[in-house]
Design a binder for these strands. Structure first.
Lengths: 230, 230
DNA sequence: GTCTATACCCGGATAGAC
DNA sequence: GTCTATCCGGGTATAGAC
């Protein structure tokens, strides 16, 4: 453990320099990585600062210098993950512009959303946040805000625009978005919340999402003489 | 603490006898009550057997004689709560028989379901189960089974019957039930999962559920010439 | 800023009297 | 079956040298 302290060199004797000056930043990142793994595996209370210490390769005192307490470390680590993973989501307006028709655009977007939210690490994180929400209400707020900024908000705008153009008839876009999400990603998400070991079945996911979008369009698609998808 | 051990008597000297012979059963129940409160308040790992000991009024050794370990106590206590509270739900077929029309029946049933699932204690229990699901996968299975037996299963039968009678057109009843639940109770349930402190707004709940049922009926209601509720 | 070593406390579980 | 008293490991956090 003391051996790794000196500057590492590769087999040619060249020093391995990750980011020129700051060894501190690298240690901080090592702490964050180790802490995230431990919190996801054990939950907040059962997670051990000793384990995080050993996995990160730094000393316990260093961790406390950086983060102050177990609670603050938890908040720092968990808060950082969520926005980063949600950033992979392309805005729904983009999907609409690229797709030939509305149904295809909605299916594409909700499928991409599902792919992100159903990733095992995200499901794990979600369970962790839900389980600790009474101890850390901030995380609930954060989760809601990120979800809204990254997904629901843009979808609301999109539905509002389409209604203005007469392509949809959505009286309450905010509620409609909640319905759309609930009917598509919400269904497999609920299943995998309570059955973590079950892998995602691609065919069933596609079927569920397609049916959810059809449900949505049967209500909000242009009504005169329109009886749902062929 | 030692004083309560002898048989309690009221002010007339009459002994207070709760259930003739079995003091053991009463203690067992006291343990369960205290344990449930502690687990719901603290989560599994942070819950203290000492606290449960003090709150239940029995000694720690007695708890271990009855339940063997903290894990088994947790399973026994949490497993017992769920079916008991779900039992309040009247079967959906009953709601259908009593209601003048299908929409009313669906609104009535999903509203009742929401009232049960949104009760603060149930939301608390649900968060607890979700958070500890990697440690206790049995609870996830149990949650799913109870939900299915008490709600989804009967709803599937109902939709199948109505389709056979020609009053609905539901090609996949199992999926349709998931959609119906997701579009109605699922929406406020999700919100309150991440915002525990927010109280349930009755008017908004009614609005959400009504809109969810309308969404469902727009897709699965009799299609020829039917364009949604007036 | 970072380490080693330690203070201090509370966790779950059990032994043995009655 | 139930109690009291205790074991023993591991928890978070910090003091003090470098």
């Amino acid at each position: 453990m003391g051996a790794e302290r000196q500057d590492a060199t590769d087999e040619y004797g060249m020093p391995i320099i990750p980011a020129p000056g700051d060894a501190a930043a690298r240690k901080r990142q090592a702490i964050i990585d180790a802490a995230l793994a431990e919190f996801l595996a054990e939950g907040y209370s059962a997670a051990s600062m000793d384990v995080i210490t050993n996995r990160s390769g730094v000393s316990k005192a260093t961790i406390y210098k950086h983060f102050g307490s177990k609670e603050r470390l938890f908040l720092a680590v968990v808060s950082g993950v969520l926005p980063k993973t949600y950033a992979d989501l392309t805005p729904p307006a983009r999907a609409l512009a690229d797709a030939p028709d509305l149904r295809t655009a909605l299916v594409r977007h909700t499928t991409e959303l599902a792919r992100i939210l159903l990733r095992p690490e995200i499901m794990l994180l979600r369970r962790l946040v839900i389980g600790e929400i009474d101890r850390f209400p901030q995380l609930g707020q954060l989760w809601y805000l990120v979800t809204y900024d990254m997904n629901n908000g843009p979808l609301v705008e999109m539905l509002t625009d389409l209604t203005a153009k007469g392509e949809l008839h959505v009286p309450d876009p905010k509620l409609a978005v909640q319905q759309l999400v609930a009917c598509t990603v919400g269904i497999p998400q609920l299943v995998h919340t309570f059955a973590p070991a079950t892998p995602v079945d691609d065919a069933e996911l596609a079927r569920t999402i397609g049916a959810g979008v059809d449900l949505f369009l049967a209500r909000y698609g242009r009504p005169p003489g329109w009886h749902g998808p062929a």
